[in-house]
Each structure stands twice: as structure tokens, then as C-alpha cells.
Design a protein around this nucleic acid. Structure first.
Lengths: 153, 153
DNA sequence: TATTGTTATACTCTATAACTATA
DNA sequence: TATAGTTATAGAGTATAACAATA
């Protein structure tokens, strides 16, 4: 430790920019959820894959990747990691011998159940900071920001 | 193109989780600002360095890195890139021959001015989606989320 | 020809360990 | 001993090009 905090760094307009505040909030929330997932060695995107396969059993790799905003090419090693841990599996598709249908295993379903409880704890922790109405407002505002990215240039 | 959108993928509870909505919104905003910065070949974190040095001329590397949430070790190549482009410079510190004082160059100040106008355009675009009150609410809510990460537990 | 899945590859971001020269 | 800056390195995240098997 040094003697003190010295003078605070002046961040100027940065904290008032949405891109900066969003990045800081997203990092804070992501780090918290990663702490919750650490014991199970799962990352948020892997959790998302388990959720999607639970809701859409037999989905193809390309569609899972697209839905989650992951490139098909990067989805391969991500999914391989889950296969190696016995959480998911590829099954042949009778109609199309190029493709594979993706499924949760029983073990994967069990893991998903545990992770969902961890996420619920994590969400509750942050939601408590905002209140019911604050959380509702936040989701609406974030949704509007996300939509705006796909509008006219 | 295939025949149609097939069936929509069911994302289940994902869109209702704050971590997921925050990630999507942050990506949308970051991609927009990166488009604005593309012609100048500047990334958001480089812009942040220019802002901080403009507000705190002569600051040391360690303090800039800490203020922006960048590891000291990763700050070196980041700053080197800006030096190579003549936007910033290191000057010796008389009291401490280990250290360097960091400054914007004139060219860096000019670049900062241009970038600030681009950021203003970007912010206005997204702020228009939320309205004045919506933007104010968003900043408050994000601030509360960011604070919560540093609390007990 | 187009599509599914895949390999190879590269660049950025992030993180840890350890070095140097000073203090 | 501790600190400022740096080097080396490794792991994720993200991107493009191109291939084999199949449609």
C-alpha cells in the first residue's frame, strides 16, 4: 500500500457516456455471474447453449450459433467442450447426413438445473438494487437500445 | 438464402435475464461506436486514454491503466500504439527516473476533438431512442448495478 | 451450386509470472 | 523490500478463408 489515494483521476465526460456506463455495468454483472459459475467451470455462453438446447431439443448447430450471436466456426470448439464433459451430444439426422441434431444429456439437464438456481440467486442480488420497477425499467431501456442498432444507418 | 425463417429459436428465460440483456445492449452500442471510429482506426479504450490524458496531463501509466480498468501490463502495447501514431508521448519525470509522465501531443488533441464529435453523434443517436428522461433513468440504473458489484458478498 | 459442419488461422482482449532499473 | 514500467506468454473471444461431405 502507498500512503493514500493520491488525487483522483478525472475521467471527464466518460462516466456520462452510455457506451462507457454500459460497459462498466456489463462487466460488473458478468464478473458476478462468472463467480457464481466458477465452481461448475461454466461460462455464461455455455449456460446459454444448455438453455437453448433444453428449450429446442434437436436443434442444428448453425441455428444455435446464430441465435446466440456466435459464429458457426467458433461454435464448434465451444460445443466440443460441452460434449467432452458429457453435458450435450450430437445425434445423426436421418433426412440430412451432413447435419447433426444437438441434445442435452441427462447430465446436462442436471447441470442446467443447478445453473438456473445460481442464475436466480445472481439476478435476485442485482434486482434488489433496482427494485421491481427499476428492474422493469432497465429491461425496457436496454431492449430499446438493442433494437436501435438494427435500424437505418 | 433458404426458403424462410424456419421456426424461431426459443431462447427461454435468457432475454429476461439482466446479464443477457446487458450484454446484447452493450454489444449493440459498442458496435455502433466502433463503426463511428473505424475511419480513424481508433477503439473505444484508446479514445478513453486520450480523454484521460487531456483531463490529467502528465499522469503516470499505472494510474491511467487503473482508472480505465486495464492491467498495467496490457496498457503498454495499447499506449505504444498511440505513441507510434504520434497521438501521445512519454516524458521523463525529474523526481523519479523509473517513471514516465504521459501527455497528449498536439496531434492527439486534434484527434480527440474529432473523436468527441463522433461520440456526440453516436450518443445522440441512441439517446433519441430513450428520450431525455429515459436516458437519465438508464444512467442511474446502470450506476446502481455497477456499484452493487463492489458491495459485500 | 448451395449448405452443414469443420479446420486452420489471426487478431484482440484479458490474465499471470517474472524481469530491469530505480526508489 | 517495494514500486514503475516492461517483457513474455497463455487463455479466451472474435473474425475470415477454405475445405469435405452432402444436398
Amino acid at each position: 500500500m502507498s500512503a493514500g489515494p493520491a488525487e483522483a483521476v478525472d475521467l471527464g465526460p466518460l462516466p456520462g457516456f452510455m457506451f462507457y456506463a454500459l460497459r462498466r455495468a456489463q462487466l460488473a454483472v458478468a464478473q458476478d455471474i462468472q463467480r457464481h459459475f466458477a465452481a461448475d467451470d461454466i461460462r455464461p455462453v455455455q449456460f446459454a447453449v444448455l438453455v437453448v438446447l433444453h428449450r429446442n431439443p434437436g436443434l442444428r448447430a448453425t441455428r444455435v450459433a446464430l441465435a446466440l450471436g456466435v459464429k458457426r466456426t467458433n461454435f464448434v470448439p465451444l460445443f466440443d467442450g460441452l460434449v467432452a464433459r458429457g453435458l450435450v451430444e450430437r445425434r445423426p439426422v436421418p433426412d440430412d447426413r451432413r447435419a447433426a441434431a444437438l441434445y442435452l444429456t441427462e447430465e446436462g439437464a442436471g447441470m442446467l438445473g443447478r445453473l438456473e438456481r445460481l442464475v436466480a440467486q445472481h439476478e435476485a442480488r442485482f434486482a434488489a438494487r433496482l427494485g421491481l420497477e427499476g428492474r422493469y425499467q432497465l429491461m425496457g431501456l436496454l431492449h430499446r437500445l438493442t433494437e436501435s442498432a438494427f435500424d437505418s444507418g
